[in-house]
Design a protein around this nucleic acid. Structure first.
Lengths: 195, 195
DNA sequence: GCCAATCTTAACAGATGTGTCAAGAATCAA
DNA sequence: TTGATTCTTGACACATCTGTTAAGATTGGC
């Protein structure tokens, strides 16, 4: 390589992720990314082409981290623990930061028409992966025994419901509310009555 | 009145609603609204002040209609019927139009940071109203008896879950999927086991 | 040390959006 | 009929964003 890159790509992508996470797709401009990262707009165009490529790249690390966290969480000894840990991870993901950043995926899906086909496909893939991971984990006998519905149905409900949690977070900014609602749903999804 | 308004306000607001519904908050410009309605941009500024006021006005009729539909739907003889009808209304609301418009409220909440405090407050009010309506309807003995959880918990879950449905609609455009997931959740929320 | 490749930087052109304003058109009231 | 009031229209000034480009700076390979 001859004319060497002046910026740290890892740092750049972390910053890019943070800006998209906070502001969403449409409210984030290339100027915003340049300013936040300290890398000139022209350099970003030169190195990546534009907003979409930068997003997709930054999203990759986010997706990996999130799915890894979920995998760890739902590897639990019982359905009740698995659901509670899953909700903990989901809620932590959308309430972290000052002020809370909300859920990147959900924000992006809501704006995905503006973001274009490629981004939509990537978001779909993340939710597909999430669904698959949940299904497998919930299908283990030890867990499945504690569920009122099938692993497939339960997984689909959980994926959908956590998207709803993200929207409620965006409007009410109350992690207590999220925890409380999740707790209620967990009871509805468990075959054993706890209340 | 002396210098009379050249446009039909009801028609204007219907058009404004449709544009916001399709494009969301940020992607809708005053020019878009002017073009779609046939009313000049200057006239819109003169008559309403700007985007926010136009949205709030158009949202009013949407909110009334939606809440009325929900009220009618959940006035049912059993919990199972109430939940099914509620989901029908919610899913019809977000899959209507060609192409489907999605859920206005959910789209707006996801972008509400950009839309400002007033809009956020109005959206919060709609969801609060929805929650209250659901709670009251589910608290009727006939219905309550069929629920696994309390009317309050069930209502909160339903409000949150339908936000999730809207996000899933936006990403997968499959009303079958929405119906199927809703059906599963209904079974989890009903005290009687149907499956 | 020099060349060539690559990155950086600032600037440009073009598009789009906002909010305002002044002049013109229309109409009700007196 | 006249005048005052209100709406309409097109233009203006300003801001922001996009994508490109040309010139300059940097540095590894030869």
């Amino acid at each position: 390589m001859v004319g060497v890159r002046q910026f740290d790509e890892a740092k750049l992508l972390a910053t890019v992720l943070d800006v998209f996470w906070r502001k969403g797709w449409q409210a984030t401009s290339m100027s915003d990314l340049a300013e936040a990262s300290g890398v000139q707009r022209g350099s970003l165009y030169n190195a990546y082409g534009g907003k979409e490529a930068l997003f997709l790249l930054a999203f990759e690390s986010y997706a990996q981290r999130f799915l890894a966290d979920v995998r760890t969480a739902i590897d639990a000894p019982s359905a009740a623990v698995a659901l509670n840990r899953f909700f903990d991870v989901a809620i932590a993901n959308m309430t972290a930061g000052h002020p809370p950043r909300g859920c990147l995926t959900t924000k992006m899906v809501a704006e995905s028409e503006a973001a274009g086909e490629l981004v939509q496909a990537r978001l779909r893939q993340l939710l597909n992966d999430l669904r698959t991971i949940m299904q497998s984990a919930l299908a283990i006998d030890q867990i499945r025994a504690g569920l009122k519905l099938s692993p497939e149905e339960t997984a689909e409900i959980l994926v959908t419901f956590t998207r709803g949690l993200a929207i409620m977070e965006a409007l009410y900014h109350s992690s207590d509310q999220l925890r409380s609602t999740s707790n209620s749903l967990a009871r509805a999804l468990l075959s054993t009555r706890i209340y």
